[in-house]
Design a protein around this nucleic acid. Structure first.
Lengths: 243, 243
DNA sequence: AAGAAAAAATTATACGATATATGATCTGAG
DNA sequence: CTCAGATCATATATCGTATAATTTTTTCTT
């Protein structure tokens, strides 16, 4: 009996491919404002040798950026940077590039606002549709958070996992699709908070309160608990940013 | 003086590229369940000549699918279909492919649920942050809807534009990023409704009510009005589906 | 002079052949 | 049983050339 290959999870590539590295490099220049909307890239041949890669690699990189709405290319007209408006900002890659490039205050505000729109409602739905397995998963995640604390990678991962589980419990695929984006948001803001030394308020009581509401099927309270949780994270982040 | 090139809007390509056609074809086979999660594609060379395209084109097509989380490819292991869980379901292309491939009842339910999560909150935010220009845009969209009715393409486009404007009025980029996805959802469900002959209830009163709430800055009422609007669309769609 | 049609220039797109690097699988030693 | 190394199929990367699409320019017609 061989170990069953995991079809469930798509493992990330261990080594990044060249075309992806090029795509990321171009994307960072775009989100960083170095290449503003409307910017036309040099002709393919010339651009490729300037970057020191083959044309095929450059083309594949552009293909990735095109599929995320960041650029568009047409014969004769060339390849140009699209207006920010048409980017797929919720795409996990775009979101990650954006944050790595230094998220602005407005962007962080938008992120928390999105969380306040999505997660409280998700908590409400989770309370109505939960099942045993997901509840134990949530409990385990909380236990790990408690044991490792948010100062450790494991603890932070458990925090993110907990929020993912709430979105999963909605049993709505589209809500679950938001989970990657929201996880990215949590990871980045947690990183900001951990930069300042003095530890922020312990968020475990709020997490446990939320869990209890979901476990008891108390939808309205679950919503309120999630709002409280996000507000706490928001204010902690703002405090951390001010230093 | 030449006409200023529009940087604002990224015009869609007039003629679809080969790689995009291939990507769409593969994507349809995937979302249609013909190629289930875990399916491994034949070796690149072989697969390319089977489809009658060059390997470059096939590679670029896979690059698009990879960037949307639908497949992942590694040397030696080949290219395989990812679990649905890791697809970027909110990506406009993925959503469109999904719908073109015949959306299931559960999927439509998820779509309306997403709208109920996002749009009422957006209406609330819009009421608080609106400006004159957006209000006149909304009024114009409603006027067009009234004049052309939902039976025409123009009328349907105006309906979608109205909902986009509400999301724009939130002044939150991430919420605006959801607008393409939601527009796709509206377009597809409106198409379903228009398939049955007897016209559904006229939704214009609800639209005007929503507009008034936003114009007056009445956030709580705007939320309620949006909920009413979506509920109406939902029940009309369900009725249409039952025939 | 004005407008339409044709030609040219420019660019992305498409193709196929070749070389490289990667990682899954097998093999053997410990 | 475990782990290090060899192997080999496969994706990855590069190159040269040919094609198609679209804007710009020119030419022709009116």
């Amino acid at each position: 009996m061989t170990a069953t290959p995991s079809v469930e999870t798509a493992l990330p590539l261990v080594s990044e491919r060249l075309h992806h590295a090029v795509a990321r490099r171009l994307a960072m220049a775009i989100v960083g404002g170095e290449l503003p909307a409307g910017h036309v890239f040099p002709a393919e041949v010339e651009h490729a040798e300037r970057l020191g890669v083959s044309r095929s690699v450059l083309r594949e990189a552009f293909r990735v950026l095109t599929s995320k709405g960041m650029v568009s290319s047409r014969p004769k007209a060339g390849t140009r940077v699209n207006a920010r408006k048409s980017w797929n900002l919720l795409d996990p890659d775009v979101l990650a590039w954006q944050i790595q490039c230094g998220a602005s205050d407005e962007f962080l505000r938008d992120l928390f606002e999105l969380r306040l729109v999505v997660e409280p409602q998700a908590a409400e739905m989770a309370a109505l549709r939960r099942d045993e397995r997901q509840l134990t998963d949530m409990a385990n995640a909380l236990e790990t958070m408690e044991r490792c604390t948010l100062a450790t990678d494991k603890g932070r991962a458990a925090d993110i996992r907990f929020h993912e589980l709430v979105l999963e419990a909605t049993r709505n695929e589209l809500m679950q699709a938001l989970s990657t984006s929201i996880s990215t948001a949590i990871a980045s803001t947690t990183a900001i908070k951990s930069r300042v030394q003095d530890s922020p308020r312990d968020p475990m009581p709020e997490h446990h309160a939320l869990y209890r509401c979901i476990a008891e099927g108390n939808a309205k309270q679950a919503r309120k608990a999630m709002v409280a949780l996000i507000d706490l994270a928001h204010s902690d982040t703002r405090v951390a940013l001010r230093r």
